[in-house]
Design a protein around this nucleic acid. Sequence first.
DNA 1: CTCATTTTTGAGAAATCCCTCATTTATGGG
DNA 2: CCCATAAATGAGGGATTTCTCAAAAATGAG
Lengths: 209, 209
Amino acid sequence: MQLGHFREQAVGGGKRERTRAALLDAAVKVVAEKGMEALKISDVTTAAELANGTFYNHFTDKNEMLREAANGIALAISRQLDAEMVGIKDAPTRVVKATASFIDIVLRELDWAAIMLAGAAHVHQLNDDVAAYLRSDLKLGVDQGKFDVKLDRFLIQQIVALIVVTITTQMADGPDRRLTHQACENILRLLGLSPAKARKIVTTALHPS
Amino acid sequence: MQLGHFREQAVGGGKRERTRAALLDAAVKVVAEKGMEALKISDVTTAAELANGTFYNHFTDKNEMLREAANGIALAISRQLDAEMVGIKDAPTRVVKATASFIDIVLRELDWAAIMLAGAAHVHQLNDDVAAYLRSDLKLGVDQGKFDVKLDRFLIQQIVALIVVTITTQMADGPDRRLTHQACENILRLLGLSPAKARKIVTTALHPS
DNA sequence: CTCATTTTTGAGAAATCCCTCATTTATGGG
DNA sequence: CCCATAAATGAGGGATTTCTCAAAAATGAG
């Protein structure tokens, strides 16, 4: 049986923790199917094969649950990104690898994508968490003299927007690595690199062959 | 009395047309105040000073109405853009002026912004309509040899994403012309222009002094 | 002005969903 | 295994919203 992310975290825990995890997994799944706004409490409990009232033993309302689910997913993604980024020093390469990995992870766990994207609008802390990675890599690049930009919140938002579109497009049309590459090139262009240089960095960063 | 956009279109029309327009104006206003998801039929009819049941004489459901409202707004914006763009031949300048004008229009009619942005996700045709302008200007630029890009749907989506973020940011934090300028520069960078050239074009295009 | 037709009205039926709580069931330490 | 405690259950009350429809009002062509 394929356990969801939260239930995997909860093996060995007490009953309380395990049903809580089941609810969170169910929430993620339901959001992926129906979106955040259309989500009903009963959808979640049904998907988790639990009774309706059980929900209220664990969460006070829908938003609390969604926030926790989104934060849990964001944390898991952060962990994976951390692992993949150790030892990379060149800022443009970091940006490209982090972007591509992030998109890869989210598209591999398709259920995660929905809650990350839907959550992005509502759960502001989420957006900030993921953006923190980006910010530090951008700062690195500015300090290295490789990015010709003013580093501010607006810049982050613009880049995040490019990433989000890349994910939603591939959610709709199916995965396509070329779009991810194109998005990375575009981000580097936006950061002030020439088209030629952007292409070169993306190619070497994403084709270690 | 300040008539809304749809009622203005409907002066001189029959009663049916006029109450329909009143409902659409009310819908736009309510979406601006409460968002698309939280919108109730009764909100719309109340705002339009009509009875609840009247709604069903004109629309079968909420989405049909929202789609029509969004399309009407998109058409109005297209008209205004058409008027402002006549005679501009240089592709980069066209892109910059159209982008800046679009953002200006939407932020000036704040009620429009909400339905355009909320609609963008749900009403796909909308996205395409507005994007058609962009597409033709991009084609022009590619033909003129000024843009170093492959013109496809993904490119359009990336650029639209940058514009959308610029609008939402200014809706949240208040209008700031500098952000619009920055967004235009970023779009030109994305299209393959150097940072210096991008800045120069934006400056001359948006400061006719 | 007249009146057949169109349009609006608003009360209430139907549907949906949230949330409570008395009861049943499961848990796990001793 | 026992049993005090923790957790799950799900029927039902309540709140909200959608949608219907018979009756009332408005319209505008002749």
